[in-house]
């Protein structure tokens, strides 16, 4: 019998291709896929979430931000903020069932105000301490109220929930908790707060409200100058109001452009901050 053991060449069962190359291609592909899914689902969720009735949003919000102020000063501050908000709302064509509730948080370190579910607007002490005029405060308030009007909090929540679910599903099919961690954090990064388009829209509407309320838009740009200054002072910890917001300089410029287009005066008498809100 003639038989020999030939030497089998390498590279038939195992490709010599580098594992890291395959890894790079797969991870790149996975990230591109996730990005596409996040963008698509996020967009779908946004379009649907805006149609959720406001009453339902209020139910979801429940007692959000509803902790009552402890002392009389805080009650007075909250009342003054609510009065200002009500004054602004009168010029904003909000649907009748959309009620704005302003809450005050006695935290001097947080220079921020934000809008959340159910028409709740939260204002921090740190912000009030920095406000040069009532006009500037009104600009911030109108900006946050516009978020409520445009249904941004529920849209943001809808996007977060849907994207989170999608990512959990992807991590599930790929069969490992290993993938969970990466995909999970990619998900939270994309689902945070409002996007730039929402912020720009809120700015535009806030300026229009200011023009209607005061007859001029002086003081609006001061808000962005203030935040730009705070940002420069603490480059590592930009104020939360700045996160994902358009560049402060651009915002000032667009205010001027908008005012010019509508014929709103850029100058005018600034209203001082109401007595109750003058915190130093």
């Amino acid at each position: 019998m003639q038989y020999e053991n030939p030497e089998i060449p390498e590279g038939i069962n195992v490709t010599p291709e580098h594992h890291l190359k395959e890894f790079a291609v797969l991870v790149g592909g996975a990230l591109a896929l996730i990005l596409a899914i996040v963008l698509l689902l996020g967009w779908l969720a946004e379009s649907i979430a805006a149609h959720i009735p406001f009453s339902y949003e209020q139910e979801i919000a429940g007692d959000l931000g509803g902790d009552t102020p402890v002392d009389a000063t805080q009650v007075a501050i909250e009342r003054a903020l609510q009065t200002l908000a009500d004054g602004l709302v009168a010029h904003m064509q909000l649907p009748s069932e959309m009620r704005i509730h302003v809450h005050y948080v006695d935290d001097a370190d947080t220079v921020n105000a934000f809008a959340t579910l159910g028409g709740n607007v939260i204002v921090f002490r740190g912000l009030l301490e920095q406000m040069p005029s009532e006009n500037a405060l009104a600009m911030v308030m109108a900006h946050e109220i516009t978020h409520v009007q445009h249904r941004d909090p529920i849209v943001s929540l809808g996007r977060g929930v849907v994207v989170g679910l999608a990512l959990a599903a992807i991590a599930g099919v790929s069969g490992g908790d290993l993938t969970d961690s990466v995909f999970g954090s990619a998900g939270t990064l994309t689902a945070l707060s409002f996007n730039r388009a929402q912020e720009s829209a809120a700015d535009a509407s806030a300026v229009a409200t200011l023009a209607a309320y005061y007859g001029h838009v002086n003081g609006a740009a001061a808000v962005f100058d203030l935040f730009a200054r705070l940002e420069a002072e603490q480059p590592l910890q930009p104020p939360a109001f700045m996160a994902s917001h358009p560049d402060s300089g651009d915002r000032s410029t667009s205010i001027a452009a908008q005012a010019h287009a509508h014929g709103w005066p850029l100058t005018g008498e600034l209203t001082p901050v109401p007595e109750a809100l003058r915190l130093q």
């Binding site: 797969l26 896929l33 790929s174 290993l178």
Partner: peptide, 26 residues
């Protein structure tokens, strides 16, 4: 190893030769 398993996990999404397991079995 952890790396091979992760790459194989990604292959679950895209399909194709699971090269990282091929060398293991070889």
């Amino acid at each position: 190893d952890y790396f091979k398993r992760f790459v194989a996990g990604l292959r679950n999404i895209f399909g194709g030769r699971v090269r990282s397991y091929e060398s293991l079995l070889d």
